[in-house]
């Protein structure tokens, strides 16, 4: 087994994530999201994947949360808006809850079933060198392919943020 500490942190992450989606106030939800992301990062550290943990903090808890904070400034947080949000949550909670339960079952089974044999070496530590060696060694082609994923995102974003619809002086296509 992997020990109680990662399990405790994982549970913390799960509870914070549940609270993040059920808070009616978006600021509270965001705070719980930070808690969830940080406890997830701590789980990674506890499991020996320090690099994944650092990336989790830098990118998710850092960069992405900063974008969220900018968006939050445009939201309505008055009491009537909160009441409306509470009502919506109550109406819409059923299916997501069911889905979480369905996904949680295998995890619970993995924890308490005991009979599950895993092919993973427990307690191994993955140093940054190993990750880098993999990414810039045998997986180099996959890294190159991933760069095209970024190009796709970049082109899509460039198209979406263009404000003025350009003039339609399109010449006949080939």
């Amino acid at each position: 087994m992997i020990g109680w500490f990662p399990l405790f942190l994982g549970t913390l992450a799960l509870v914070s994530a549940a609270l993040a989606v059920t808070r009616p106030s978006v600021v509270h939800g965001l705070m719980w999201l930070v808690a969830a992301l940080l406890s997830l990062a701590a789980t990674f550290f506890a499991l020996g994947a320090g690099f994944a943990g650092a990336v989790q903090i830098l990118i998710y808890a850092g960069a992405i949360l900063a974008v969220f904070v900018f968006v939050v400034m445009t939201f309505d947080a008055s009491p009537p808006a909160l009441a409306r949000e509470r009502l919506r949550l109550k109406q819409a909670a059923r299916w997501p809850l069911l889905m979480v339960l369905a996904l949680g079952l295998p995890l619970a089974f993995g924890l308490w079933g005991g009979a599950v044999a895993t092919g993973l070496a427990p307690g191994g530590r993955v140093p940054v060198q190993a990750v880098g060696g993999l990414l810039f060694g045998p997986w180099a082609v996959a890294v190159e392919i991933a760069s095209f994923l970024l190009i796709a995102a970049l082109l899509g974003a460039r198209h979406l943020v263009r404000r003025d619809p350009p003039t339609d002086s399109e010449r006949p296509a080939p």
Partner: peptide
């Protein structure tokens, strides 16, 4: 790519179509 429209307001169209092709090839 041949009948992709609208072509000019969105100049990103052709490269994006080739990107989708690359994804399929991968």
């Amino acid at each position: 790519l041949i009948f992709l429209r609208p072509a000019l307001p969105a100049r990103e169209g052709p490269p994006l179509m080739v990107l989708a092709t690359l994804g399929g090839a991968v």
